[in-house]
Design a protein around this nucleic acid. Sequence first.
DNA 1: GATCACAGTCCGAAATATCGGACAAGCCGG
DNA 2: CCGGCTTGTCCGATATTTCGGACTGTGATC
Lengths: 264, 264
Amino acid sequence: MTDGRADGAADVAAAGRANGRARGIDRVIALMEHLHRLRTPARIADIARDTGTPRSTVYELVNTLAEARWLELRDGDGAVYFGPAMHWYGSDYLDSVDLIRKARPEVTHLAETVGETAQFCTLEGDKYLVVLNEPGRRMFRISSEIGIKVPIPWTASGRLLVDHLSPDEIRAFIPGADFTLPDGRRIAEDEFLTDIARARAEGYARTTALVDRFTTCLAAPVRDAAGRCIATICFVVPVDTPEAEQTRMIDTLKSSGAKLSVPR
Amino acid sequence: MTDGRADGAADVAAAGRANGRARGIDRVIALMEHLHRLRTPARIADIARDTGTPRSTVYELVNTLAEARWLELRDGDGAVYFGPAMHWYGSDYLDSVDLIRKARPEVTHLAETVGETAQFCTLEGDKYLVVLNEPGRRMFRISSEIGIKVPIPWTASGRLLVDHLSPDEIRAFIPGADFTLPDGRRIAEDEFLTDIARARAEGYARTTALVDRFTTCLAAPVRDAAGRCIATICFVVPVDTPEAEQTRMIDTLKSSGAKLSVPR
DNA sequence: GATCACAGTCCGAAATATCGGACAAGCCGG
DNA sequence: CCGGCTTGTCCGATATTTCGGACTGTGATC
C-alpha cells in the first residue's frame, strides 16, 4: 500500500517528507541522485542544504557509505563523490543485460574505427537515455552524459524509439514541454511526426543543430522480434561533416543496428 | 576462471548487530555486496537467508531500491539484480577519477588493436583489483571480473604494484595465505621477491600459468611523480603466444604505461 | 484432492536510528 | 584578539522503522 509517490523530480522537498523524519535509505537515495545531477563532488553542508537532509544525518550516512566505498572523500576539502563500489556494481549490471553486453563491443568498435563519438541509447519512461557512450578522436569531444534523461524530440534516436506508436499515442506519450528545445525554440509536432515516419521508412534518423547548433546526430534502430525499436546505436558528429561521409556512417550504423537486432 | 566461487557462507554477522535489529542502510550494503559476490541475480528468499536479513525486511528494501532503479526484478521469477542506476553512478565515478579517465581509451585501444584482453589494475588495500577490463577478440574470452579482489602474488601486475616496498615491508604487507594459489600450490616468497626486483629493473612483469594453467599475464607500470607504481596496464594472453609477439605486446604496454605515468 | 513448499503481503510492538541543537575547533578579516 | 562563519562531533528523546510471525495464493507432488 505504498502511496503513489512517483515523482522524484524535486530537489529540496524530494527527500524530506512533510514533517521531517525519513528513512536512512531514502536519504541515501536522494543523496546519490543529487550527486548524479551535479556530476561533481559536493561538500557535505551543501548536500544537506540541497537535499533537505539534516546535517548530522548526512555526516552519519556519508561515513557509513564511505566505509562501504559507495562514496569517496575528495580533495581533502571534505567534498564527497561516488566511490569505486558504484563502478563495480555498475559493471555487474552492464554484464548482466544481454543486449547491452552485445552492444558494448559494437559501440567501441564504431568509435575506434570511425573516430566519432558513438552511443547506445534506449527509452527510460518517457525520456531518452544514453546507456553507452564512447568518445571519438576529436580534439573537442562531443559527448553526452550517461544516465541523464533527455526529451525524446531533442534527439535523432528518439524519432526511432517511438516509431511503433500511432501519432495520437505519441502525442499522449511525450510531455508537451519536451517539444521545447534548450534555446527556447519549439519543435512542431507534425514535423516531428513526419520525421518519425521517414525514419521508419528509411531505417535511420538524422537530426541537425537541435540540442546545440554544431552537431548532427545519426541513428539506426535495434529492433526486437516484434520489429519494435528497443534501442538505437548512433553517431554524434559535427554539422559540417560531408554528406558522403555521413552516408557511409549511416550504412555502418544500420549494419551494426541490424547485427544487434533479433532477426524477425 | 570458470569457477565462480560463490561463498555460500555469506556472513550472517557481517550485516546485523549481535542481537537482531539493524539499520536499513546496513542491510542494503550487505545486500549489494552479496549480489556482487554472486555475480548473478538472486531470489529474495535466498538473499534473506544468505545475508541474515529478515525476509520481510528484504521485501521492503527491494521494493524501495527497485523504485530507485538501484535493483531490477529479473526473469519474472522474482530474482533481483543490479539496476541501471548503478551503471549511471559507476560511470560518474569513472569520469571523476583522472587517471581512470585517461586509462580508459588506452585500454580499449589496446584491446581493439592487439585483439587480446587488456586491463587496468590497482591495489585496493592488500589486494589486487581489476578496474578496467576490455575483452579481446578471441572466441574463448579470457577475462577477469571487475571489482573482484585477488591476492597480489597471483598476478603479474601485483609484482609491479608493490615494487616500492622493501622485502620486509612486502612480507608484512601481503597476508601469508595469499601466497597459496587456487590449486593449492604455494608461491615461494623469495622467488616472488626476485620477480619483483626483476620486474622493476626491466620495466614490465610476466607471469605464466599462475591462476590457471592456460594464461600468461603481461603487465607494465603506471608511475606517479615519485616514481611509485600506482597502477598497471596489462594483457591477458594464452600461454602459447609466440615469444616475438609477447615481446611486441610488452613494448606496447610499456609505452602505454609511460603515457599514463606522470613524467618525473 | 490433500499436503507441502515457496512467494509475497500485512500488521502491531518495541528497539533504535534519525534529528535538533549544543558544542568545540579552525579560519578569516578587521 | 574578537566576532562571525563554517566544519565536524556528540548526545538524548521520540517518531519511526525493523522484525516476527501469521496469513493468503499458487504450483508441484503424490
